[in-house]
Write a protein that binds this DNA or RNA. Sequence first.
DNA 1: TCTATAATAATAGTATTACTATCATAAAAT
DNA 2: ATTTTATGATAGTAATACTATTATTATAGA
Lengths: 223, 223
Amino acid sequence: MEFQVTFQVNQKIFLRNPESSEVGRHIVKSAIDLIFELGFEHFTFKKLAVEVGTTEATVYRYFENKHRLLLYILNWYWSYMEFLVMFRLQNVTDNHVKLKTIIELLTHDLPESAGRLDYNKKYLNQIVISESSKVYFVKEVKEINKDEVFKPYKDLCSKIAGVISAYNPDYSYPRSLSSTLIETAHYQQFFSSYLPKLTDITSENHKEFTAVFLENLLFRVLG
Amino acid sequence: MEFQVTFQVNQKIFLRNPESSEVGRHIVKSAIDLIFELGFEHFTFKKLAVEVGTTEATVYRYFENKHRLLLYILNWYWSYMEFLVMFRLQNVTDNHVKLKTIIELLTHDLPESAGRLDYNKKYLNQIVISESSKVYFVKEVKEINKDEVFKPYKDLCSKIAGVISAYNPDYSYPRSLSSTLIETAHYQQFFSSYLPKLTDITSENHKEFTAVFLENLLFRVLG
DNA sequence: TCTATAATAATAGTATTACTATCATAAAAT
DNA sequence: ATTTTATGATAGTAATACTATTATTATAGA
């Protein structure tokens, strides 16, 4: 059986829906490759246009600027992650197993999807780790937030918080703990790769180290 | 009694020591004001030069680029924070009190120092919260790290990890927990201010909320 | 099949950013 | 008194982050 999962990303993030055309899809796919390769600071629409084989003007018809494009990519990621959490928790009754599954999902690459959108999942994962904080740590966050562009992140956070509360209804900070899990999953992987003295990593398996650290933390906190 | 605490910031961060001249000190002070006001992305050396009443060329004689200047500010912050931790833990024997003091320091504005450097502590604190991750979430992190520019961060992390281990010698991840405390102190404050649905804040006191959340988390983790 | 309507390519242009270079002058050190 | 050093003034360049115009192509509807 073949099936496709699609999410409608918030209209306000793009000027023209990139999923509606070949060029549009190519733009997002190449953006993921380029942001991974160059880092967000060195990534430009000019370079992207060259990579796609189109012009800057065309890219600008889809996205207002590179910040919005990154936001688009992350919205896609957060939505997909929320779907994966929901999907993988289907029919699981044990809340302990649920939380372990969530940590596994947060700390490992996305599974390859069969769909039309074959984004490079390794690159996407690295972008989420290294670049995602740049979409909210900006002076304009209040303005941007009004467009509800962080809704998928909040939904994901909320879903995980729900499981936390189910596991321990007396715990007072399910949302903060949930966002802490998500963020910590990112920078502990980053730190263990590039600034290992900020962590206790011993082997080379950054994802596994992060998962084990988070699991330990989570279940100590929740009892 | 008047006294001054100074830290020698790593030579490799600057081209000319900004503390060695009036203009240099003015540059750093104004940089803190401007980065706070504009956000790091909109902050430029041109704007800084105008603010200081000097030229771009002069600013470039002190710092290679704005990334290095931010790094300088954070090195100063991390060093000062490590000093404060050391200072405030003097003569405290109870490890529980030590950890509470550390969380208090991590989540609140720096105390005003009597010294020559009267950086705006409120602005500095906001910069640490919103901009600090931008110094390491860059493609060049490996190269930059070779200059030991993250040493003060690692030292601070290590100092806190030491207290964690003293409190609970059996805990396996003192460094990771330490960096998690530091980072979480930042973005829980940020989230509770701008994206409150990612947290469990109820009042308006972001610093207090973050402190209480972190304390709860820390002592549950360490038992 | 013709025609209206999008979307794109090609091209140009602007303001700002992120620098580098030169040279004269002022201040500090020897 | 003279050398060194820092700064100011000025200029200039390549890249970035856009906006605008027009011709061409693809598509969808009549």
